[in-house]
Design a protein around this nucleic acid. Structure first.
Lengths: 250, 250
DNA sequence: GGCATGCTTTGATCCAAATCAATGCTGTAG
DNA sequence: CTACAGCATTGATTTGGATCAAAGCATGCC
């Protein structure tokens, strides 16, 4: 079945009505700066499961994720792979100053990117402080997230890893939906078991077993394989091994 | 014994003769910008083993490491700790826009920092594109390093982890010494076994065993506990599990 | 319907690294 | 000199997660 593609109208190129206008790399731009960005931008869409780019390939744009979920991952020669980033709406893809992709990028759901041609975008970083500042801020946030993840990968048990992943997805979901609370009670997992395993440095069997265990213990309630209910968010946080009240720096 | 502290003269505050002048956050500054930086900078030194700051504490400066080695680490309530960064000379410490430390920072050797008062430095980021650009570049490099490390933590065996750590230290050492080749054959480990374990997500026993194994197999030669000779750098790279010719991006 | 195909779950077994436990080495203090 | 403190090494045993293996369960196709 051909995926029912973009939910947003690709011809509605008006940044003003863009769902990520105030969180993406363009967040700080003034009207005139936005106009400049509009001139170098174009949209691309990818179907769920499709590769966006492979590590080492030429990538002559940078982009904001408008909708959908993509993953960044690294693969060793023998096939072991580790996911190193999860790109949700408003996240930035690509590295200014580098013309090839550093990681494999895969669309895990249908994805819409707002792409900027690399050269003019790099020029804009030099000329438009609002873009450079926002990009620095976003990069620092990603660095914090990567370091938080290093703790997960290096020191947490399988059960804590699963709980941490669910907590992170729930938090980001809540943020996107502009939920008032810190969490949602029901969410759709954007990842397959295999992606979860690659993110957590586990095998799919272990992921499956630990999810079953959390379900048995009443920490989560499954509705089908992809939808998760979290009856008590604090209970879940407790399972992550983190301080109850912190976890995410910010 | 009171440590024989700074090797550089703290009164020689001239940026022009600074050993990290062309690699630190100030690398791109023009003479006049450097003068501005000089006005907001001061030096601090820490003895080996001393904490620089604890996570959550107030930190009203950002800084460049001038000499020595410091670590960034996170600790869980039950004591499990994970190192999330290694600060070598020219590396940047602190996050503009944040007034508290996100991680525990510890001097593992005698360390000299070139500190900038936070407020004026933040102002400079806004007013001096050369500083903001360099900081963005350095942050992107750190993000790449953190992601490379995620692969190490999530997917590599203990032996591969040790080899990866040695390779990274050797590479950075070579860079600092401006060695022509890609590697040095002899180096001083800046870390104790415990720090290595915290970096690699292992126990000290496993670190010790794997180092012994690499020695037995002739991959490394130990001179005392802290000095390592690498007779064949490609052999070591082979043990990391990475592509022989890549490993580090860029 | 019947039958692949692709995910997911569950069970049995194995093994790499953790844990528990000495012992060794080096430098400092008495 | 001995004693002690603080790493580091090595050995014995345990264990959490990997691996190997077999179903289970949708979904789509013939």
């Amino acid at each position: 079945m051909p995926a029912l593609l973009p939910e947003i109208d690709l011809d509605a190129r008006d940044c003003q009505s863009c769902p990520i206008r105030h969180r993406a790399v363009c967040a700080r731009c003034e009207a005139d700066e936005l106009e400049h960005l509009e001139q170098i931008k174009y949209y691309r869409t990818y179907e769920a499961g499709q590769p966006v780019v492979w590590a080492g390939d030429k990538l002559d744009f940078v982009a904001s994720v408008v909708s959908g979920v993509a993953t960044l991952s690294q693969t060793m020669e023998d096939g072991r792979t580790q996911m190193v980033g999860l790109l949700l709406p408003s996240d930035f893809l690509g590295r200014p100053g580098r013309s090839t992709a550093s990681y494999d990028v895969t669309a895990v759901s249908n994805v819409t990117l707002c792409c900027f041609r690399r050269k003019p975008f790099e020029e804009m970083i030099r000329s438009t402080p609002h873009v450079a500042q926002r990009l620095l801020e976003m990069t620092l946030d990603e660095l914090d997230a990567a370091r938080e993840w290093m703790l997960v990968l290096g020191r947490k048990t399988a059960r804590e890893k699963i709980a941490s992943l669910l907590a992170i997805i729930a938090r980001r979901e809540a943020l996107l939906n502009l939920d008032p609370g810190r969490s949602v009670t029901r969410m759709e997992l954007p990842l397959t078991r295999e992606s979860m395993a690659d993110y957590l440095g586990l095998t799919i069997e272990t992921v499956s077993r630990q999810i079953s265990a959390l379900r048995r213990d009443g920490v989560i309630v499954l509705e089908g394989k992809r939808t998760v209910q979290i009856p008590d968010f604090d209970r879940l946080l407790n399972e992550t091994g983190d301080d109850m009240d912190g976890g995410v720096l910010i």
